[in-house]
Simulated scan of single mutants.
Amino acid sequence: MRWTSMLAIYVLFWAFSVFLVLPWGVRTTHEAGGEHVPGTAESAPHEFNLKRLAIRVTIVATVLWALFVLNYSYGWVEAGAFDFFDPANRTDMNVL
């Protein structure tokens, strides 16, 4: 696989991981013991730390991307393993 393809796939994993990591550790103002500010949603986070979010997303995306690259290299799970509609063409999954 070319490095540009690997980079593009990493960016996709990073963007997907944002939605995975975003709800981790979120506390509302009520849960944090603060006073609700009129005009804001009650479910809005009390504090938003972009740096902490970016670090968490980068870690999760890197782990997922590394598993993807290892699977691509070693062929642990192939696309044919998910062919549920045509059992004749289905290949068995390679188990570690």
Rank of each mutant, 00 (worst) to 15 (best):
N49S: 15
P45K: 11
V60I: 12
A32W: 06
N89P: 01
G33R: 06
A15R: 06
P45L: 08
D83W: 07
E47A: 08
W14P: 01
A8E: 11
N94Q: 03
F19P: 02
M93C: 09
P45Y: 13
Y74T: 12
E47P: 00
I9Y: 02
A66H: 05
V21W: 00
R52T: 15
V77N: 01
L20I: 12
R90W: 03
P23H: 10
R52C: 08
V69F: 00
A79T: 03
A54H: 13
W76K: 01
A44W: 03
F48I: 15
E31R: 09
T62Y: 00
H30G: 06
L70A: 14
P87Q: 09
F16Q: 07
P38M: 05
T28K: 02
S73N: 13
W76G: 02
D92T: 14
F85A: 09
A66K: 05
R2I: 03
S17G: 13
W65M: 08
V57Y: 05
A88T: 10
F85E: 09
A66Y: 12
T40S: 06
V77Q: 00
N49F: 14
V60R: 01
M6F: 01
L22Q: 03
W65R: 04
V57W: 05
V37L: 10
A15S: 12
W3F: 10
M1H: 09
L50F: 14
P38S: 09
A61G: 05
I55M: 10
T58F: 13
A81D: 15
D86H: 14
M1P: 06
A79S: 05
F84V: 01
A41M: 11
V57S: 00
F19E: 08
W65G: 04
V95F: 08
L64S: 15
A32D: 14
H36P: 04
N89R: 09
N94V: 06
P38D: 12
V77M: 04
A32Q: 12
W65V: 10
V11M: 09
A66C: 14
T58L: 11
L7T: 14
I55R: 10
E35D: 13
G25E: 11
Y72R: 07
F82R: 02
T4R: 03
W65S: 13
L64W: 13
P45S: 10
R2Q: 04
M6W: 00
L67D: 10
